[in-house]
Nucleic acid binder design. Structure first.
Lengths: 348, 348
DNA sequence: ACACAGTGTGGGAGCGCTCCCACAGTAGTC
DNA sequence: GACTACTGTGGGAGCGCTCCCACACTGTGT
């Protein structure tokens, strides 16, 4: 095509500038949509860009501007759970939607094992992303602190405690659980058990509190033998259900803190010869695909997960770009709580 | 905090060099594990690196070396299918495993809609990845050609036709399907229908061929009314099953080209009052989680999907780094075909 | 006439690295 | 003792951007 120098290579800013008959700075301004450029020059530059098929070199941009145009979605779970739990797919979708309009890349990071966690920490300390979305954080997790130390803007989903310092998006777990229990009471159930998530997850604890409060509000005593702690897995739900049946054979309803655990519970109930909902009513949490496909279809508390993902991403973007001007950094910020909704199906 | 200059910043190569009392070049050599550096200097540099907590700046490296240390896994499917179809999770796992040892980042790209495809094409022409893994390519897809044009090393999974030009990893679809059908014949089934994937997917066509060949080999005529084309979705499988039942009410076995379609078929069979496997035997393909959790558990052809992912990644890495030395580029390369295995469960 | 604030614009400096050329040192050869 | 042939090493030159300062030019007010 052309003689010397570059030839095969992709066009650079400088070449676009030459073509448009302007300076490098001007092209950069046009590309970044910023400040004052006359309509005329702008048009000329844009023409040159299309003619040459110019695409900015991301590495150069990152180096010069000291940013990465990338954020990480960190999911501290093993791969298996990531795919098994539809929760994550919705988060990813929401985050993706919020990012679609921007030129920001999403880096998905699973870190289930300790080894992977270390790799991740190393990766993050390389400052290769401008911000981090942290999903499903357990209580003792050192990751959030690390991020604060590194000064990387972070938004987490699900506060770690009542006094969360990081900006955070949550659903109203307590009220959602309470609604589920009220629904069971309304249906005339008398002995309502619950299967909780791991209690070092704040959200799981809130759901348990919702269960307790709803019972208390209805003037029912809370029998601790009706509470079984599990771990959000199907197998855990199964084990918990077995325990519950042993301890309180007379139960006639179960509120599980996740659909997947409800699926486990269902298997165990069926094995024990209990019919759903005739003998035992079952309610889950998440309203995931699992819920709709269960037999019978599962009543479940629907979290606006996708919206949560979208909100998180938007909050993070604001901090990332806001942080450049103001000195906001990682500092504590607003928290958003979204409402849940009970979806009633045949299992209750 | 500070007015100008570095101070707050992360350590640079130069600082490490100063600390170790060597030159920039030497540090670079140590970091990249390359060529001749005396043991002594090497140790000094490594000490400086740990003391300073040095982590290379990836953007600078990418800019200078003209590479990205990132490859893309492109999945031309909408998000919903990506999560619904366990196939992809296994691919991701395999690819992840192969990349775990390297310092190469995996960029996951879903491109279901046309709009997303265009974004992807634009992204790729920005040369932001060193190579591309292409999964589930349809016949008329322009993406592979684009990649060849851009000179980006590519490995695809599932050849597009018998005469695939790109390096490619495949499972033996034909033989897998044939084995499934032989198994049904062995069980004494006489009227075996099949639900295929979209026939512009070469692998789907191979499975259909396997079905035909197995029947032919057993001296059975192939009745075209026993073949229904679907699209790898549950709903598609359902529709296909309905068709089949209408056209050939006497069928006593179904081979579905994917587990998800088999799940759809099962719903429809059940709705029609056919018992599985008593009235109709059912076999799927993929041996995904769905298969194990179905009621009754589904006999299925197990593809070594994770291994396929691993193999693809390894092939790509070889081309990416090999391509730097030799002039290999994107050119045609070896293709690998892995064996499948029938997993027999209660549905047949 | 002068100063003075605006608006566009060009281009230098520099981001942190890799590449590679030049050169010192050491060792082997005539 | 001067030659070549290494092996390590230092550091210049860029990679393609963004940032920002300097410099036209235009106006407006005195």
């Amino acid at each position: 095509m052309n003689g010397h120098g570059r030839s095969g290579g992709r066009p650079t800013l400088e070449e676009v500038a030459a073509r448009a008959g302007v300076g490098r700075g001007t092209v950069s301004r046009v590309i970044n949509g910023s400040s004052k450029v006359s309509e005329q020059t702008k048009a000329a530059v844009e023409a040159a860009v299309t003619e040459l098929g110019y695409v900015p070199n991301r590495a150069a941009r990152a180096l010069a501007a000291n940013r990465n145009d990338a954020i990480a979605l960190v999911i501290p779970e093993p791969e298996a759970r990531f795919f098994a739990e539809p929760y994550f797919s919705e988060v990813v979708r929401g985050v993706g939607a919020a990012l679609a309009e921007t030129d920001i890349q999403l880096v998905l990071t699973l870190a289930g094992s300790d080894r992977e966690r270390r790799r991740l920490a190393h990766y993050l300390s390389g400052h290769r992303v401008d911000g981090v979305l942290l999903v499903s954080v357990h209580a003792g997790d050192p990751l959030p602190e690390l991020l604060v130390e590194l000064g990387i803007p972070t938004v987490i989903s699900g506060r770690r405690s009542a006094a969360e310092t990081l900006p955070c998006v949550d659903s109203d777990n307590l009220e959602g659980a309470a609604e589920a229990v009220r629904h069971l009471l309304d249906r005339g159930r008398r002995t309502i058990a619950t299967i909780t998530g791991p209690l070092d997850v704040y959200g799981a604890r809130c759901r348990l509190d919702g269960y307790r409060q709803a019972l208390a509000a209805a003037g029912r005593p809370v029998d601790e033998r009706l509470v079984a702690v599990a771990d959000f897995t199907e197998e855990g739900g199964r084990r918990a259900m077995r325990e519950l049946l042993e301890r309180s054979p007379a139960l006639d309803a179960v509120f599980a803190s996740s659909d997947v655990m409800a699926a486990g519970a269902r298997l165990e109930l069926r094995a024990a010869g209990r019919r759903i909902p005739h003998d035992v009513a079952l309610v889950g949490f998440d309203d995931s695909v699992v819920a709709r496909h269960m037999d019978p279809p599962l009543t479940s508390v629907r979290q606006p997960i996708e919206e949560m993902g979208r909100t998180m991403a938007r909050m993070l973007l604001e901090r990332v770009s806001g942080g450049r001007g103001s000195a906001t950094g990682t500092g504590g910020g607003p928290s958003v709580v979204l409402q849940n909704r009970l979806v009633v199906r045949e299992s209750s």
